[in-house]
Amino acid sequence: MAAAFNQGNRIMKAIIALTVLTIIILVVITVLTREKQAAQQKRREYIKKKPLSNHEQVLYWRLVGALPDHMVLAQVSLSRCLGTKDSGGLDEMTSKNLDFVVCDKASDVVAVIEIDTKNYSSKTVSKDDERKYKALKKAGIDIIRWRANSLPSEADIRERFTLLDPSKKLRVVKNKTHQTSIFGIGIGKYRNTGAG
């Protein structure tokens, strides 16, 4: 009986010793990991980046020149100009950005402008972009897409936007050959606002 008790006592001491050793190892690993992360944060060098690509910079200044009586906003979060009547519905799209938003002097959105990069096929629209464009269209916001490799001039932009009435609101002129649009290209259920 005493031998069994001594054997059980040794096993219990071994288990306690292993448990203490495991806890010590975990604490050491945690401390070393935190110190390494803190050292990395101190060493991390932050660099200044341009918020707009070269194509976006070119188009921004052309938009500003062509539409002097309007606000031209770049890289705008979708949630800044689109909401829902209920509390749900927009959550999955809140992280989406719009290349440009053109507003009138009252900050009402006149149009959204997206630049299609050279590797972007104008005949297909990603599912995320399709959902984004559908939501904008349902809210009554016009979407204009221009190819990065053939951006419009200031005169072309002025031609694309024309005054509707004395309230100074703009509308989008249809059927310009130098412009692309999602409407009628890849998503047949939309009306065509331009060929490209």
Rank of each mutant, 00 (worst) to 15 (best):
G184P: 05
K123R: 11
Q41M: 08
I187L: 14
Q57S: 14
D91Q: 13
K174A: 12
K50Q: 11
Y60T: 01
L26I: 04
I144R: 01
A155R: 07
K123Q: 04
V109Q: 01
A4E: 11
I187M: 13
D142N: 15
A111Q: 06
Q75N: 13
K48N: 15
A195D: 15
K13C: 03
Y190E: 14
I29V: 14
E159G: 09
M93E: 03
A2S: 10
V173W: 02
K137G: 12
D108P: 00
S181G: 13
K169Y: 02
I115M: 08
S167R: 09
A4K: 09
N192A: 14
A135C: 03
Q41S: 04
S150A: 13
W146I: 13
P166Y: 04
E130L: 15
T177R: 10
L73Q: 09
I115G: 05
A195R: 11
H178F: 13
A106T: 13
D156W: 11
K123I: 02
I29H: 01
K42R: 14
L63K: 11
A139C: 05
R10V: 14
S126L: 02
K36T: 12
S87P: 01
Q57E: 15
L63W: 08
D156Y: 06
K168S: 07
M1W: 09
R158N: 10
L63P: 12
E45K: 15
I24T: 15
K168E: 10
T30Q: 03
R80F: 11
S77C: 04
A3Q: 11
R158I: 11
N119R: 00
E159C: 08
T162D: 10
V28E: 04
V64P: 00
P51W: 07
D142R: 14
R34F: 03
I113K: 00
L151E: 05
G186Q: 12
S87H: 05
V64G: 00
I157E: 02
V102K: 03
G196Y: 07
G184W: 09
R160S: 11
A38K: 15
D69T: 09
K96S: 12
I115W: 04
L98F: 03
R191M: 09
T33E: 01
F161Y: 12
T94F: 00
A14E: 03
A139T: 01
L164F: 06
A2H: 06
I185G: 14
S107T: 04
A2G: 09
R10M: 14
S122T: 14
K48Y: 11
I157S: 01
V64N: 06
I141Q: 03
Q7G: 00
N192G: 10
I115H: 08
S167F: 05
E56M: 04
I141F: 06
I157W: 01
G140D: 09
I144G: 03
H70G: 00
R131H: 08
E154T: 13
Y46L: 10
W146P: 01
M12F: 07
H178G: 12
D165L: 02
N119V: 02
K50L: 13
S181W: 13
N9W: 11
E56G: 10
I16C: 04
Q41G: 05
E114H: 01
